[in-house]
């Protein structure tokens, strides 16, 4: 076991949690990510292997599925696989082992920072942040959206609970934008 200590995307040793009124924004560093892109002509095989890995049918366009290992659609024949970091730090290798040459797999764990937004008026916060019709998003929806000029993924875990993935290097700016919106509208 190596002896290098991790820091969160916001630079702390512990994840940051901010609450304004009834909405909470929580930094979530405990997630491992790996991208999966089907190889040419191997799309069906890749989907099948991915489905087996996440335990459910491979998510369709704009959707995510699976637990505890899940995947969300990111592009044509492309997905991002999510899993708990503590049990899956080596996720990319695990996914590669499962899918083999049917897909290209790339570690994405630290390419992203995740903030989970929860609370009764979370939609009011999101409508200040991104152009998605968040009021129409249902559990299992995943969409790409620009937040504060950052390319993000927004996942609807339930109508009052969303995950936002943004580029890790801009975690501070993204967090600032989210908390500013929370303070503005709540």
């Amino acid at each position: 076991m190596h002896d290098l200590a991790a820091i969160t995307a916001l630079g702390g040793s512990e994840p940051r949690v901010d609450t304004v009124a009834d909405v909470t924004c929580a930094e979530v560093p405990g997630v491992a990510l790996a991208s999966v892109a089907a190889r040419s002509g191997q799309e069906a095989k890749a989907q099948k292997a991915l489905a087996k890995l996440i335990g459910v049918k491979t998510p369709d366009i704009g959707r995510f599925a699976g637990d505890p290992v899940s995947a969300f659609w990111t592009g044509p024949d492309q997905w991002m696989v999510e899993a708990p970091f503590d049990s899956h730090e080596g996720l990319a290798q695990q996914v590669k082992d499962a899918i083999g040459d049917a897909a290209s797999v790339t570690e994405q764990t630290d390419a992203w920072t995740r903030f989970d937004l929860n609370g009764g008026r979370v939609l009011a916060v999101l409508e200040l942040l991104c152009p998605l019709d968040v009021r129409k998003m249902a559990e299992g929806d995943a969409a790409r959206a620009a937040i504060h000029h950052l390319g993000c993924f927004v996942l609807c875990r339930s109508p009052g609970s969303f995950s936002v993935y943004g580029p890790r290097s801009s975690a501070g700016s993204l967090h600032h934008a989210i908390v500013t919106a929370m303070k503005s509208t709540l």
């Binding site: 892109a37 089907a38 002509g41 390419a111 992203w112």
Partner: peptide, 15 residues
């Protein structure tokens, strides 16, 4: 379009 090649940015993933 028929090349078997997949691209993804990993700029942020690695220090």
């Amino acid at each position: 379009p028929d090349m078997d090649v997949q691209l993804i940015s990993t700029t942020e993933a690695w220090a």
